[in-house]
Amino acid sequence: MSQLYIEDVDLGDDVGPLLKEPDRAQLDAYVKAWGTTTGRFVSDEAAQAEGFTGVILPGNMSMGLLAQLLTNWVGLEGKVKRLDVDFRRSILPGDKLNCSGIVTDIQIVDEENQVTLDVYIETQKGERALQGTALVVLPNKG
């Protein structure tokens, strides 16, 4: 894994995309690890009773994919400090997800190299299912 440094980053830089296609087996594994019994995540019937076409991904699972985009980007010496996300649309198993970000601010605060990003997940329909902001810290070169 190569390390990203603050010197490598400019305003407007794209982050990602991290392409993901979580399937039903992954959703089931996530729900099992969590232990939730919320109907819309575990049962097609329960999800349909709420107006969905079938089970949907929990927002916190999709948000975990955005966290993955960020931890991959900042590397072992970087750190994710904050992630703030709105769950705007439901995501179904099998949806093709583009997890991406763009650098909107770079500042040194308390001797930390802080990078602010807009982050989002776009589905194959071109809809932003999740959207938010993140703050990460990157090391200096050398």
Binding site: E50, A67, V80, L83, D84, V85
Partner: peptide
């Protein structure tokens, strides 16, 4: 991973019993 806390099974905490609308869902996390 950073969002691992979502796996913890904990009590749900105090409930403000908001009586509004016909449905509820997660809108986001900070």
């Amino acid at each position: 991973p950073p969002l691992f806390y979502n796996m913890f099974s904990l009590a749900s905490g105090l409930d403000p019993k908001v009586n509004f609308g016909t449905t509820g869902f997660d809108a986001g996390q900070h």
